[in-house]
Amino acid sequence: MTHAAELPAWAAWCVALLLLLGAGITLIGSLGMLRLDGFYQRAHAPTLGTTLGTAFICGASMLCFSLLASRPLLHEVLILGFVTITTPVTLMLLVRAALFRDTAEGHIDDIVRRAKQTPGDEELR
């Protein structure tokens, strides 16, 4: 890391903080892959990494390279925009595929019934 010394002190602290925050949020999200139960709960886990995790790490990278080159380099905005646009598509397709498979195998009923349940038919279950 020879270039680390070229960064001003405040920038090094900022890059370090952004990196740790981003990596930590991504780690928490991926821990959710282990700790949450069932596919539909786990499908929420990667969105932590694709929102704030990506935003912080892209911010750290932008800050670092902009200062090293001493001009604003915003290439990471491409990654951030791309990830924001594509995550809804992938997760929507995956959840729909999972719903389709569960319906075909017949064990979706309790999932949907719990969601559709109105306060009146609580005792029916």
């Binding site: 890391m1 680390a4 602290w13 890059v15 903080l17 990196l19 740790l20 990596a23």
Partner: peptide, 12 residues
Amino acid sequence: SSVVLTWSVVIA
């Protein structure tokens, strides 16, 4: 500060 950055990159 460069030591901090080096270590935080490793931890990240």
